[in-house]
Computed example of a mutant assay.
Amino acid sequence: MTSISVLGCGWLGLPLAKHLVTNGFAVKGSVRSEEKIESLEAVSVTPFVLDIDGEIAEQLWGAFLDSDILVIAIPSKNQTGFSALIRVLESSSIKHVVFVSSTSVYADNNGVVTEDIAASESSALFQIESLFYQSSVFTTTVIRFSGLVGYQRNPGLFFQKSGRSVSNPDAAVNMIHQDDCVELITQIIKQEKWNNLFNACADSHPSKREFYTQATQRIGVSTPEFIESDTQTFKIISNEKIKKALGYEFIYPDVMQITYDEC
Score class of each variant (00 low, 15 high):
residue 47 P to S: 03
residue 178 Q to V: 11
residue 180 D to R: 05
residue 88 V to W: 01
residue 25 F to S: 05
residue 83 S to W: 07
residue 101 S to I: 08
residue 103 T to W: 08
residue 18 K to E: 12
residue 152 Q to H: 15
residue 23 N to G: 03
residue 253 P to N: 05
residue 14 L to T: 05
residue 86 I to A: 00
residue 29 G to P: 01
residue 91 S to G: 12
residue 190 K to T: 08
residue 206 P to C: 09
residue 255 V to S: 05
residue 135 S to Y: 10
residue 78 N to E: 10
residue 92 S to G: 11
residue 228 E to K: 08
residue 146 S to D: 08
residue 242 I to K: 06
residue 93 S to G: 04
residue 17 A to W: 05
residue 85 L to C: 11
residue 81 G to T: 09
residue 102 S to C: 10
residue 194 W to D: 02
residue 146 S to M: 10
residue 197 L to N: 08
residue 211 F to G: 00
residue 106 Y to P: 03
residue 217 Q to C: 08
residue 21 V to M: 07
residue 29 G to V: 05
residue 184 L to M: 10
residue 222 S to L: 13
residue 164 R to E: 02
residue 200 A to G: 11
residue 240 E to M: 04
residue 175 M to P: 01
residue 180 D to G: 06
residue 29 G to E: 04
residue 26 A to V: 14
residue 3 S to Q: 13
residue 168 N to P: 07
residue 32 R to W: 00
residue 171 A to M: 09
residue 187 Q to F: 07
residue 16 L to F: 02
residue 181 C to Q: 03
residue 238 S to K: 03
residue 166 V to P: 03
residue 200 A to K: 10
residue 209 R to I: 09
residue 218 R to H: 04
residue 123 S to P: 09
residue 179 D to P: 00
residue 2 T to A: 02
residue 185 I to Y: 01
residue 143 I to N: 04
residue 129 E to R: 03
residue 247 G to N: 14
residue 185 I to C: 00
residue 259 T to H: 11
residue 136 S to A: 11
residue 163 G to V: 11
residue 231 T to N: 12
residue 135 S to F: 10
residue 69 I to W: 02
residue 2 T to W: 01
residue 157 L to P: 04
residue 41 E to S: 15
residue 46 T to D: 02
residue 231 T to F: 07
residue 36 K to N: 13
residue 98 V to R: 01
residue 111 G to E: 09
residue 200 A to Q: 10
residue 108 D to C: 13
residue 140 T to R: 05
residue 256 M to L: 15
residue 193 K to R: 15
residue 183 E to I: 03
